[in-house]
Design a protein around this nucleic acid. Sequence first.
DNA 1: TCCTATGTTGTATG
DNA 2: ACATACAACATAGG
Length: 265
Amino acid sequence: MPELAEVEFYRKQWNLGLNQSIQSIHINSERRIFREGNPQLAAQRLPSSILKESQCSGKWMLFKFQPTSWLGIHLGMTGTLSTAAADYSPLKHDHLVLYQKKQSLIFSDPRLFGRIRFEQTHDAPLWWLQLAPSLISPEVKLKDISAFLKNHARSPIKAALLMQKRFPGIGNWMADEILWRASIHPRRLAGSLSPLEEKILWKETLTVVRNALKVIGNDWSDPPNSWLFNHRWKDGGLCPATGSALLRETIGGRTTCWSPGRQKI
DNA sequence: TCCTATGTTGTATG
DNA sequence: ACATACAACATAGG
């Protein structure tokens, strides 16, 4: 499910456990979920450590534990974070449960596309520091976007928007939402956009990111019906702007929805 | 049975 | 080496 706003929502679910120590942990499917981490080390070090803070970077979350433990979590396609009572019994798809005195913190993921990285370092781990800067940080400028699109000139713009190196946290629905707002056909090649189209694309990217965080990132409210979001999945969906039928095809390897009258090749 | 699913990566190909 | 395309991963639900 998760793109940057949903990831932000899930990250906050564990805030209930801030500044409390871990009593014990439960790990399941560790060969896959910890495929680039170290489950033994996590099982050894997390108990008795204290959850201090967390952050998001794109679709990654990082949880900091005192004294020197870090838990990086990616939710894949179907991962979730939640909390439950302190005596919670893990279900089939619960791959990590951190038991605290007052509650348990749960990572669950039926499809196992998610991943957990555990590190024992003083500072935040290197892989975290090397993630792409947030789209809404001042360091990312239109010229960076423009240069990136030129470097991927022969990719459909839809595929380019899904590349986490430049568009961290953007996923399938946000990419479609951005292109719909910018009135750009998802099959247009990234290198074919005019300077004006690039400018509009970048402006709408920022708008979609900010609005998604505001609406979904806080309490998972439904986006307003004026967004493409509420119309894109169902057969027979109509464009909220033009009222005409939406189209869906696979572009850039993902099901893509667009409004043919508004987004032209 | 077959198709779909808000993601990423390894591999093949150009 | 770089860019692009696509199968593979694993499970559930329509």
